[in-house]
Nucleic acid binder design. Structure first.
Lengths: 267, 267
DNA sequence: CAGTGGTCTAGACCACACT
DNA sequence: GTGTGGTCTAGACCACTGC
């Protein structure tokens, strides 16, 4: 044990328990060292010190920076990895997660073709219906943590699989972080919306919560999705969060599930 | 390093890499030691050496039993814990997870009352419609890994919240493991079905996969759920697995979502 | 008090990727 | 070869639980 100094290292770490030195007095709000390290790394992530796709310093570098052992930063990074905030690649390094990667694209779109269905579920075709700037209705404001009347963007679009319209979506975004978002940008872009959000606005979606209901199609919806009025549709309301549990997007989708389904894993 | 013998310990562990001894030759199908330990513990779990609710041996005991260091069994148990197969309780021990615990009851029922709804979502009232023994239809057999015509049990029931019928469910179970299941047992029982499965049949559900669609109520369903025909309902098809990814239950539910929703977290 | 899980360290070696 | 993540050990001490 080389660390015999009772003073904690830089960065305002509170004296941890069981650090191998003579035990400091019990801290009132005790938090393990690796949690504190995790918070520090998280802060750097939020601050943009390392951007999506970037490699973050190696375990040993971070251990040196925070004056802890490699094992401790490993445990911190392990948690960040299971939270999908960071991806480890053996032999290469640890990288800030991004929605632009091939194998995690559409991580939040839990729709699959039914077995036996003809659909091969290629990438969705996207058609922007409109993209407007307006004042937030009360309910939208509440969920996004804004005040009623604050500027928001509303994007309406249709997603189609194999030429058949499948999803009608309304996307609500806070006006501040997404200033300058245009229908053209959205139309020209290929790839997931969340990847665009990262590259163009520096907003990374980290987590989302969905509420799902069954509803009947109203007249407008029926037309866009080419079904009869009253046709049963899945209503999927998603609230997506960036770092630090800040809500950044409210999305309301209506899904045709005639030859597709929403899938979910329970653990 | 006390372990200087190049032969692996008992239990048929393959020589691991990086165990502190002089490196053995690279194993073709390399698997970390802690994974092997995890498998061994899993095997004991399946074999019923420790039953749901039981305490398993302490970290140190297991370390001694498998002749590895405490850190290695910890890593194994950590994974079992995140898989919800085992629960750690500081100061007490590590216990085999069970559906009978208060705070994890209805772990697989992802239904919540809407905000602003009057429902306080007390425990569901359950009404068994029927419980029959019959031969498995092709599709059911396929999903349960049986042969068409094998004996299966079919349970139909209605769940109600606050007196209002909410869910109409068909539960298909393989006849073998659930031999002797009776409508009376189900009716008399209070608490989750999955808890009953553990205590009465030694079958612990570990994981499930759901496919969700929106459908219109047919005549029979409409009556049970007290809605009009064609009323939009959530169709939730769940395949639940025991240890070792063995499918053990197929469940088809129709959910009213007028004042409730299915919720989901995306990570 | 003893026993259990939880944290931390220091150091070793392995597997992988790049150059 | 060098650097990175991944595995493993041995030993220490802390925090919690229950006798």
């Amino acid at each position: 044990m080389s660390q015999t100094s009772p003073t904690p290292p830089e960065s305002g770490l509170t004296a941890p328990a069981g650090d191998g030195t003579a035990g400091a007095a019990t801290t009132p709000a005790f938090s393990p060292l690796y949690q504190q390290i995790k918070s520090l790394i998280l802060r750097s992530l939020q601050a943009g010190e390392w951007k999506p796709g970037d490699m973050i310093p190696s375990d040993l570098d971070l251990a040196a920076r925070y004056r802890v052992s490699q094992g401790t930063v490993r445990k911190a990074i392990d948690e960040l990895a299971t939270d999908n905030l960071v991806v480890r690649r053996q032999g290469k390094g640890t990288f800030v997660a991004t929605h632009a990667e091939q194998h995690v694209q559409y991580r939040f779109l839990r729709v699959q073709p039914d077995e036996g269905s003809a659909d091969t579920q290629g990438p969705a075709q996207r058609h922007i219906i409109e993209c407007r700037r307006l004042r937030a209705p009360a309910e939208v404001a509440r969920q996004l943590g804004l005040r009623t009347g604050d500027a928001v963007l509303l994007v309406k679009r249709v997603l189609a699989f194999a030429g058949q319209p499948a999803i009608l979506e309304e996307v609500w975004l806070p006006g501040g972080p997404f200033k300058g978002l245009q229908a053209e940008t959205l139309s020209q872009d290929k790839g997931p919306m969340y990847a665009l959000f990262e590259t163009e606005f520096g907003v990374r979606m980290v987590r989302a919560v969905e509420k799902i209901k069954a509803v009947g199609a109203d007249a407008g919806t029926a037309e866009w999705l080419r079904v009869d009025m009253g046709h049963p549709l899945l209503s999927v309301e998603r609230l997506a969060y960036t770092y630090n549990n800040v809500p950044m997007e409210l999305r309301r989708g209506l899904y045709r599930t005639d030859s597709r389904h929403y899938f979910n894993e329970l653990n």
